[in-house]
Write a protein that binds this DNA or RNA. Structure first.
Length: 403
RNA sequence: GCCUGGGUGGUGUAGCGGUAACAUAGGGGACUGUGGAUCCCCUGUCCCGGGUUCAAAUCCCGGCCCGGGCCCCA
């Protein structure tokens, strides 16, 4: 037997119903905020990702050479492609430019819960403004999406890299290694690196919960952003320990966790960054975030969220040799957009009802010779257990009113 | 890449050297014109490859896959 590749998944009809539902909800909220959807290729030049993230990522991507020897990679994320698209053909669009996207990504990782080799992400970019209201709206949007789809237990943390870097300058400890240790929350190692005294200063620094306790000028802008987020009625925690290893991250950073998910609990991350010049475009403020689609769904399931069930089809059963008449009826229903399914197993009426019952169908039409002679069929209500003969001409009005 | 637990019909499990079993799901029938109950029948399984043994689902080794934790998380 050939099975699916490690870290990939098949989705059952039940799962696809949930996924398509969630996808639609999230799209609607992006659109509600004035974002418009884009889509980029599944494959990109490997260079796009090494440019953004360094050579180190090569071993974590699915990359290969195509038949002309081009180095190609299955996209491990969607931000870089979206930025590439902007630089390649959207630089002259009216600002602010608000775009969002949804797609599958691939990473060569060790799979575990909430982490797959093929996974889906939603994301967006806000291009052209770094005003406090722009960042405030962006962050509010991310939180709003997760709340609106039905998550109850999520935590938004907001930090600021300018402030963090300014602090590290003040204790003479600003370098990439230190940032990485902070990012990883490896405080034991950080203590060794900074020394007892400076480490204590750091711990005091990241305990800060009110931004007005900070005297750096960057704090003023962050304060303004936070007060505008208050206007959007979004709850958050200030968390100055949020770090990012790479240089193009600037200013505001934020993360949203669903604590129920354990080790892989982060479901959203974003902030401000300066990627456009790296890709050869004209410098412009950009910010955005990405939402882990699979994890959002896992979090909903972990919270016991009740997904809407789709409407069940009307079932058309028939007796004996009435298959042609059954097709006529089914065709009529479908022509009128009434979801319907007819017996394809040649089952007896008894077995047909058993089947319809098991599938949770609410209406069954039985096509039988005696009634057909009178231009009638039997319409059975599976919940009430009642049935009656009705004129074929009446089917549509009855089913439209009853379903 | 590392540590750790695990893989038995479609699904959930028992068996843990000696004829693979139970439940459930699937198909049919009892009920040739009526569902949810009951009963009967049928289909279908030891992840893969080596090794040990008279004998391996069972023990050993390797691989693959799944879960949990690291690393990483652009």
């Amino acid at each position: 037997m050939v099975s699916k590749p490690r870290g990939t998944r098949d989705f059952t009809p039940e799962e696809m119903e949930k996924r398509r539902w969630l996808e639609k909800e999230i799209r609607n909220i992006f659109e509600l905020y004035g974002y418009r959807e884009i889509s980029t290729p599944t494959i990109e030049h490997l260079e796009l990702f090494t440019l953004k993230s360094g050579e180190g990522i090569i071993e974590e991507t699915y990359s290969f050479e195509d038949k002309s020897g081009r180095k190609i990679s299955l996209r491990p994320e969607l931000t870089a492609p979206a930025m590439r698209f902007y630089v390649e053909s959207m630089q002259m669009e009216t600002k602010p430019l608000k775009i969002y996207y949804f797609g599958n990504c691939f990473r060569y990782d060790r799979p575990q819960k909430g982490r797959y080799r093929e996974f889906w992400q939603f994301g967006c970019e806000l291009i052209g403004s770094d005003k406090p209201e722009a960042i405030a709206e962006l962050i509010s949007l991310s939180y709003d999406i997760l709340k609106e789809v039905g998550l109850r237990n999520i935590i938004l943390r907001i930090g600021n890299l300018d402030i963090l870097r300014r602090f590290l300058d003040s204790i003479g400890a600003r370098d990439a290694r230190i940032m990485r240790l902070i990012d990883k929350k490896d405080y034991d190692e950080l203590k060794k690196e900074l020394g007892e005294e400076e480490f204590k200063k750091f711990m005091d620094f990241i305990k800060i919960k009110k931004i007005d306790e900070i005297e750096y000028e960057e704090a003023e802008r962050m304060g303004e952003i936070l007060s505008l987020i208050d206007e959007f009625s979004i709850p958050y925690n200030v968390d100055l320990s949020i770090a990012r290893g790479l240089d193009y991250y600037i200013g505001t950073v934020f993360e949203i966790d669903a604590p129920k998910l354990g080790a892989e609990k982060q479901i959203c991350g974003g902030g401000e960054y300066n990627l456009v010049p790296l890709l050869g475009g004209k410098k412009i403020p950009t910010s955005g975030f990405a939402i882990g689609f699979d994890r959002t769904l896992l979090a909903l399931e972990a919270e016991g969220f009740e997904f809407n069930k789709k409407e069940k089809p009307v079932y058309v059963a028939y007796m004996g040799e009435m298959i042609r008449e059954a097709i006529k009826i089914t065709k009529l229903l479908r022509k009128n957009k009434i979801k319907s399914e007819m017996d394809l197993m040649g089952r007896s009426i008894s077995k047909s009802l058993e089947y319809a019952n098991k599938k949770g169908m609410k209406k069954v039409i039985i096509v039988a010779p005696e009634e057909w002679e009178k231009k009638k069929i039997i319409l059975k209500d599976m919940e009430k257990g009642e049935q009656r003969e009705i004129d074929i001409d009446e089917i549509l009005t009855l089913l439209v009113n009853h379903s």
